[in-house]
């Protein structure tokens, strides 16, 4: 039997409305945590998905990774690094500000299963991104090794949070201020060389880190999933700016991804396309 009119209308889920900033705090130099009231996104978001944000009416559409959410309260948190005009503007937001655009969830959810031992590696904003992934993998019954990297100890964050959802947390720092290896890819290599069984690696961070991670695991044939971060505009498959080449085929990172098999990605192309607007970005920042 079809539901009556009354039942139908009482089923109204979260009403879309203005997205308000609940808070913003620095996690590390240039690294910010932004929490907003966004019930639509909070009700649907899955690990691996992202949102697109505009800081003001003149702003670019910037894809941001989601690092945590509270479905009950309708709150969503993102981490971003302040690198250019748009993220600089995001870094000025304060509680009570209304974002003109906060749209999502976008992209496919990350494939989650019980694989055995999974390494989740994060660098930069990716340290935040891997948190909900580690949590979900742990809930699925995996042995989770979280692996975070940074140039130095003071650039790392959320160790405590990751410890709470991981069986092991490994730290790498370029200056060896913390941990035993210089970066995540080397840490994974060391693990594999020591005979540790790893069933899957998931890496999120700057393009170069993900590239190195894919190269580190390639000789060991350990499936390595990377979350690609090309330039995007609409995030719904409309513009093609985010096209990447995977296994020789052009894919749109926004709708076909953002997660792909790192051993199949054309990294040279991705690295080149990431740099397309370096000049204008500098001009925009200098105004």
């Amino acid at each position: 039997m079809e539901p009556s009119k009354q039942e139908r209308h009482s089923k109204d889920p979260v009403e879309p409305g203005p997205v308000t900033v609940l808070g913003r705090e620095p996690l590390a130099p240039n690294m910010q945590l932004l929490t907003v009231q966004a019930p639509v996104v909070a009700s649907k978001i899955q690990p691996g998905q992202f949102v697109i944000v505009r800081a003001d009416e003149y702003g670019e559409r910037v894809p941001l990774t989601i690092v945590d959410w509270d479905r009950e309260k309708g709150a969503v948190s993102c981490v971003f690094m302040q690198v250019g005009t748009s993220t600089y503007k995001l870094g000025k937001l304060k509680a009570g500000d209304v974002l003109p655009t906060f749209v999502g969830p976008l992209g496919k959810p990350l494939e989650l299963d019980r694989w055995g031992t999974v390494v989740v590696a994060g660098g930069c904003y990716g340290i935040g991104s891997i948190y909900p992934i580690a949590r979900a993998l742990k809930e699925k019954g995996n042995r989770v090794i979280s692996l975070i990297e940074g140039r130095s100890k003071f650039l790392l964050y959320w160790l405590d949070r990751l410890e709470a959802v991981s069986d092991r947390v490994l730290v790498s720092t370029r200056d060896r201020s913390m941990g035993n290896s210089v970066d995540g890819p080397n840490a994974v290599k060391d693990l594999l060389a020591s005979g540790e069984r790893i069933d899957r690696v998931i890496a999120i961070g700057c393009t170069f880190m993900m590239y190195l991670m894919a190269e580190a695991t390639r000789p060991f044939a350990v499936k390595t999933i990377v979350s690609l971060n090309p330039i995007m505009i609409d995030g719904t498959g409309m513009c093609g700016a985010c096209r990447v080449s995977v296994a020789g085929e052009t894919k749109f990172a926004c709708v076909d991804g953002p997660d792909f098999d790192g051993h199949q990605v054309d990294w040279d192309l991705l690295l080149a396309r990431r740099k397309a607007y370096l000049g204008p970005e500098t001009d925009s920042g200098e105004r």
Binding site: P13, P16, V40, K44, F102, V103, P105, T236
Partner: peptide, 8 residues
């Protein structure tokens, strides 16, 4: 800012 097919 509402993507049918994603948000609902």
């Amino acid at each position: 800012d509402f993507v049918v097919g994603a948000a609902e």
